[in-house]
Design a protein around this nucleic acid. Structure first.
Length: 743
DNA sequence: ACTGTTCGATTTTTT
DNA sequence: ATCGAACAGT
């Protein structure tokens, strides 16, 4: 049955299971609830097999949430449900069908930075100066093509113009380089599946027959290729249900194509459109103000949001003298709310760009307000982490020449640029991969006398080769991935080289490698047949690690983009100035489309607030080292006057820059002045046996890197014991006791 | 192979 | 202001 906590439109959305449907779900309209109800309805009432249902979203977080909720509803193990991201879905298909496309199933997935490296290598090879032709520019061309669904041999003539572009040759070379490396990039995951379906009708039919009900969440974020993919899959049954909100489309710069929404009915002429317009989240004031702002956009289907909620407080628009005063206002106001009994984790501060967070953090720090910065965790982008992952990739997919050349001389083993150039030459000459050359050199060094390798280099190759092969063998024989990682870390000498340079940074790097170790352990526990290659897949397609952080009493700081999908009773939109929000880039481009996207961003930000919305802006702000006077954002002016109250904070009219003159607090050295470089206990592979938790809540500890802190939470015991420590300024860090240099 | 220096760019970042 | 990448010098 359909849960009776759904409203009319939501019920309709649930019941309309056959034929194409587009659900336009405004902010806070109970979209997830409806989707979960719909999948549950298919399963429980229509008794559709979970095997036949496919639901795709964009983020792993969203997929997980939906999977768990449906699983709980219908008493199914979450694993039985095909609720997944576009990219995982495609990666899985490609692993099964890899042979059709001349890939092998252990192919590597390249992320954006690796794609960029490939581009750089190609440009270098062609002797093109990176300044004349920035790699980012080339990469943009390539990913744009892929986002629009192009693959080699696309039948459509839509790409004729692109093929004339001088960059097209680079695209082709890029593609063949990836293919040689047995690698696929993010965009390629999607287009390769489309290609697979186009070229092999029998494969296509298998999947088409299987997925009888297809749902797409966050539809406004789909690009052309993703749309094409679900169109193909649903072509026969036409049971496609897309859910999205054109007003929250904020990823066009990533290839999201709002036309997927605007033109849905053109592709599916009999589509039913259902609008979810009742908002359950925000006060009437907020909803009406936001509705007014977004109504200025022309690129929309048009919904009119309404709510039964109370009117609530007026929006506060705070005019601050400068960005510093803005920060101080935030701290002061948050403190006041706290004193009134509100909780810190009910408050969030949004900014347009990450650069703005620093000054806000400063004020919160000074005000003693605990906060957390919600940001794309860059853990997997760390050099040392990428290095070790590259080792793993060479083990998993030895054709991955990018990974190989990254680590063949890390740590230094005498295989420098010159040697690398030589073996690259050999690889080209013999038409094989770098790894095959490495293997051949190790086995038959005499065959390579013509490239004059010293004895030392030869033995380096041999050591490297046997390490990789031993781990590979271990992987095939079901040795735990973490053990393989251990071996790589230790026998490559990587860990040793870090330990040898006992400086501040190496210490942190070692910790990160320990963190990577626990990530592998975590993965092992969650998987039935863990492998290194499975681990790689998890982390390339799911970067959301570390996001579990306990929001215990912290104000959340984030970009407007990362706020999408979240809600907070109290929300602060900061930097509401021309050239900041909307950003100067979107103004420069002078295109109405760009401004509309900024407006959608502003709309997203406004609709995060439940009870009270603050919008702050500064008269003067430091931008790229210069003081700028931008004036209030046009979006403020688009809010009807009756919805807000204008307040001035330290806003003077003269001598605008004086506030920057005596900045006594800015240059304090906050880092620990002395670091105790005692030997870090490394026990990877030989867990320390401790039977009980050795740390307690509230205990004071000293971390040799971060200084003094207080134990915030503890979990596990013995070698699995983990502690979260709170350092001054509300910074929370989690450590594994057996690794962390704590005293 | 490591280190310092200059130069330049610089929104957003689900995968 | 600040960070990183590219380059030059040791």
């Amino acid at each position: 049955m359909i849960p009776d906590n759904l409203n009319g439109a939501q019920k309709r959305a649930v019941e309309k299971t056959d034929g194409p449907v587009m659900i336009l779900a405004g902010a806070g309209s109970g979209k997830t609830r409806t989707l979960v109800a719909k999948v549950s309805y298919l399963l429980d009432v229509l008794e559709v097999s979970p095997y036949k249902i496919l639901a795709v979203t964009f983020s792993n977080k969203a997929a997980r949430e939906m999977r768990d909720r449906v699983g709980a509803n219908c008493n199914l193990s979450p694993g039985a449900l095909q609720i997944t991201t576009f990219h995982s879905f495609c990666a899985n298909i490609l692993r099964s069908e890899a042979r059709h496309l001349g890939l092998s199933r252990n192919f590597t997935i390249y992320d954006d930075s690796e794609s960029k490296s490939v581009v750089k290598v190609i440009l270098n090879k062609r002797g093109i100066n990176l300044k004349e032709l920035p790699p980012s520019h080339v990469l943009h061309f390539i990913s744009d093509l892929k986002n629009r669904g192009y693959y080699e041999g696309t039948p459509s003539d839509e790409f004729d113009e692109d093929k004339q572009d001088e960059l097209f040759g680079l695209f082709l070379e890029y593609e063949s380089e990836l293919h040689r490396s047995n690698a696929v990039d993010f965009g390629g995951l999607i287009t390769a599946v489309i290609q697979l379906f186009e070229k092999f009708p029998e494969v296509r039919q298998r999947y088409e027959d299987r997925y009888q009900y297809i749902m797409v969440d966050e539809y406004q974020d789909t690009n052309r290729a993703q749309f094409e993919l679900v169109r193909i899959l649903s072509e026969k049954k036409q049971n496609i249900c897309v859910v999205g909100d054109e007003d929250q489309s904020i990823y066009s710069w990533r290839g999201a194509d709002i036309r997927n929404i605007l033109d849905f009915e053109k592709v599916f002429p009999h589509a039913e459109i259902i609008k979810l317009e009742q908002n359950y989240r925000s006060s009437k004031t907020i909803i009406e103000a936001a509705t007014q702002v977004i109504s200025k956009n022309l690129q929309r289907k048009g919904k009119s949001m309404w709510t039964d909620n109370i009117d609530g407080d007026a929006i506060d628009v705070i005019e601050c003298h400068n960005d510093k005063v803005e920060g101080e206002f935030l701290a002061k106001e948050i403190k006041k709310l706290k004193e009134d009994g509100e909780s810190y984790d009910d408050m969030a501060i949004f900014y347009r760009s990450n650069a703005q967070s620093r000054i806000i953090e400063d004020s919160l720090l000074k005000g003693g307000i605990p906060y957390r910065v919600v940001a794309g965790i860059k853990f997997y982008e760390r050099k040392e982490v990428k290095d070790l992952l590259a080792y793993i990739r060479v083990v998993v997919n030895s054709k991955d020449s990018l990974a190989l050349s990254r680590i063949v001389n890390v740590p230094t083993r005498g295989i420098g640029a010159t040697t690398l150039r030589k073996i690259e030459g050999e690889a080209i000459r013999m038409g094989c991969s770098l790894w095959e050359i490495v293997e051949k050199i190790s086995q038959f060094p005499e065959d390579f006398s013509h490239i004059k390798l010293s004895a030392r280099i030869k033995s380096s190759f041999q050591a490297f080769e046997s390490l990789v092969n031993e781990v590979k063998l271990g992987e095939q024989n079901g040795i735990a991935p973490s053990a393989g990682y251990d071996k790589l870390l230790i026998e490559s000498g990587y860990l040793q080289s870090l330990k040898a340079s006992r400086d501040y940074e190496s210490l942190a790097r070692i910790e990160n490698l320990q963190e990577l170790f626990s990530a592998i352990r975590q993965y092992e526990e969650s998987s039935t047949s863990p492998t290194l290659s499975g681990f790689l897949e998890t982390i390339t397609l799911d970067t959301s690690r570390d996001e579990e952080e306990n929001p215990a009493g912290q104000v959340a700081l984030m970009t407007v983009h990362s706020s999408k999908g979240l809600e907070f009773p109290y929300a602060f939109i900061t930097g509401a100035e021309e050239n900041v929000f909307p950003s100067y880039q979107s103004l420069e481009s002078d295109s109405e489309t760009a401004i509309e996207e900024e407006r959608r961003l502003f709309y997203v930000a406004m609709t995060r607030a439940m009870k009270k919305l603050y919008i702050t802006f500064a008269q003067g702000r430091m931008v790229f080292g210069n003081l700028r006077f931008n004036g209030p954002s046009r979006f403020i002016e688009e809010i009807p006057k009756n919805f807000y109250k204008w307040v001035r904070k330290g806003a003077r009219r003269t001598d605008a820059s004086s506030c920057y003159d005596n900045d006594e607090d800015f240059n304090q050295d906050t880092g620990p002045s002395e670091v105790n470089y005692h030997d870090v206990q490394i026990n990877i592979g030989n867990p320390v046996k401790r039977q009980s938790a050795s740390y307690q809540k509230g205990q004071k500890v000293t971390h040799s890197l971060y200084g003094e802190g207080v134990v915030w939470t503890t979990e596990g015991f013995g070698s699995e014991e983990k502690v979260t420590i709170k350092f001054p300024g509300g910074v929370l860090k989690k450590f594994m006791v057996k690794f962390a240099p704590l005293s």
